[in-house]
């Protein structure tokens, strides 16, 4: 995605009618960052520099916003992104064990990526499938009910495949 091609008017939508030019540019910052990340998988510095010029915002301001929100990353991610839910319901039903098992199996810590870029391990607060607790997602596909070491083992084996 070319940052320069980002249409400010279409991004800001109808609210734009109420806003000044700079407010509009500022207003689409988060959306723009989201789109860059969707495109590249993370926020490369070069792209952010281009964005800084395009939106007329200093790079430090962009970093300040991007580092505040949890979803933005400045490093590339693995092919499989495994998110373990540590929400209350999942926590109560033992999602910590699932997390430990994955950490041990792949020798990664939370929010780290394996050196071969195969897997990134993350945690989330709650993905709202508390009925299926404990839940993990692999590239946004929800896998629930990982109770018991046998199910966890099978899950880890499925992560290794392909």
């Amino acid at each position: 995605m070319e940052v320069e091609a980002l249409g400010i008017e279409e991004q800001i939508g109808e609210v734009g009618a109420l806003l000044s030019e700079q407010q509009k540019k500022r207003g689409i910052l988060i959306q723009a960052l989201q789109q860059i990340q969707e495109d590249r998988g993370y926020l490369p510095e070069g792209v952010l520099q281009a964005l800084s010029r395009h939106l007329n915002l200093s790079l430090s301001e962009i970093f300040s916003v991007a580092s505040f929100y949890k979803m933005f990353r400045f490093t590339p991610r693995g092919e499989k992104v495994v998110k373990v839910c540590l929400g209350t319901a999942c926590y109560v039903r033992g999602s910590k064990k699932v997390l430990d098992a994955i950490e041990n199996a792949f020798d990664v810590k939370v929010s780290e990526t394996t050196p071969d870029l195969a897997l990134t391990l993350e945690t989330v607060g709650c993905i709202g499938c508390c009925g299926l607790a404990p839940v993990t997602t692999v590239n946004d596909v929800v896998i629930g009910d990982l109770v018991g070491s046998r199910k966890v083992e099978r899950f880890i084996r499925s992560l290794r495949e392909e």
């Binding site: 607060g125 709650c126 709202g128 499938c129």
Partner: peptide, 11 residues
């Protein structure tokens, strides 16, 4: 922005 863990009525 329903962030409470364990709540999903808004969603």
């Amino acid at each position: 922005d329903e962030g409470d863990p364990g709540a999903f009525m808004d969603r």
